[in-house]
Computed example of a mutant assay.
Amino acid sequence: MKRDVRILLLGEPKVGKTSLIMSLVGEEFPGEVPLRAEEITIPADVTPEKVPTHIVDYSASEQAEEELREEISRANVVCVVYDVTQEDTIEKIQTKWILVMNRFHCC
């Protein structure tokens, strides 16, 4: 059985990655949102599968490409977040983020 799960949120700036994490933690939409949320851990006893879950936010403005490479290689799940009102953020899923994941994914 899996010991823990690591979920990485990727996407263009200002699409809502940090807001999603903060809404989960605070159980309401945050009024003020930092550039990046700290990693959060959901304890095993509150998850249906009884597995600790780590949720990681990525911010290109605050983190180097090497950190992105490391986070992708450590992630069990990668969620690419986009803004449905900004078509360029949707297009970047295919033209940027899938390519980045393929380049940095480690066997």
Results as ranks from 00 to 15, higher is better:
43 P>A: 00
45 D>M: 05
61 S>E: 15
75 A>V: 09
33 V>S: 03
43 P>G: 00
75 A>G: 05
27 E>W: 04
39 E>R: 10
28 E>N: 10
48 P>F: 09
66 E>G: 04
47 T>N: 01
35 L>K: 06
20 L>H: 09
25 V>F: 03
74 R>H: 08
46 V>N: 00
69 R>P: 00
40 I>P: 11
23 S>A: 12
50 K>A: 06
54 H>W: 02
52 P>G: 04
31 G>Q: 10
34 P>R: 07
36 R>L: 12
24 L>Q: 05
37 A>V: 01
57 D>Q: 14
61 S>A: 08
54 H>G: 06
59 S>V: 00
63 Q>W: 13
27 E>D: 12
65 E>Y: 11
56 V>P: 02
69 R>K: 12
53 T>C: 12
40 I>T: 11
46 V>E: 00
67 E>K: 10
50 K>S: 14
75 A>E: 11
39 E>I: 09
20 L>R: 14
51 V>F: 00
71 E>P: 01
47 T>P: 05
49 E>A: 11
47 T>H: 01
65 E>T: 13
28 E>D: 11
39 E>M: 10
26 G>H: 05
30 P>W: 02
44 A>R: 03
61 S>G: 10
52 P>I: 00
48 P>A: 11
22 M>K: 13
25 V>Y: 04
48 P>T: 10
39 E>P: 13
64 A>S: 15
26 G>Q: 09
75 A>Y: 05
59 S>T: 01
48 P>V: 11
25 V>G: 12
64 A>F: 11
42 I>Q: 11
72 I>L: 03
42 I>M: 08
50 K>Y: 03
68 L>C: 05
52 P>N: 03
54 H>N: 14
24 L>D: 09
20 L>D: 04
65 E>L: 07
62 E>K: 13
28 E>T: 11
67 E>G: 02
67 E>S: 12
37 A>L: 04
47 T>V: 04
62 E>T: 14
35 L>W: 12
65 E>I: 11
61 S>P: 05
64 A>T: 15
52 P>C: 02
65 E>A: 11
72 I>F: 02
70 E>Q: 15
74 R>M: 08
49 E>I: 14
72 I>E: 01
33 V>L: 08
30 P>A: 08
75 A>Q: 05
59 S>A: 10
60 A>E: 15
31 G>R: 12
63 Q>E: 11
34 P>M: 08
59 S>R: 00
44 A>C: 04
62 E>F: 07
51 V>Y: 00
40 I>C: 08
53 T>I: 15
21 I>L: 08
49 E>Q: 13
50 K>M: 04
26 G>R: 04
72 I>Y: 02
46 V>Q: 00
36 R>M: 07
72 I>R: 02
53 T>A: 06
46 V>S: 00
35 L>C: 14
35 L>F: 14
38 E>R: 12
75 A>W: 03
30 P>C: 06
24 L>R: 07
68 L>G: 02
45 D>R: 08
36 R>C: 14
51 V>R: 02
39 E>A: 15
32 E>W: 12
57 D>G: 10
41 T>Y: 00
65 E>V: 06
32 E>N: 11
57 D>L: 06
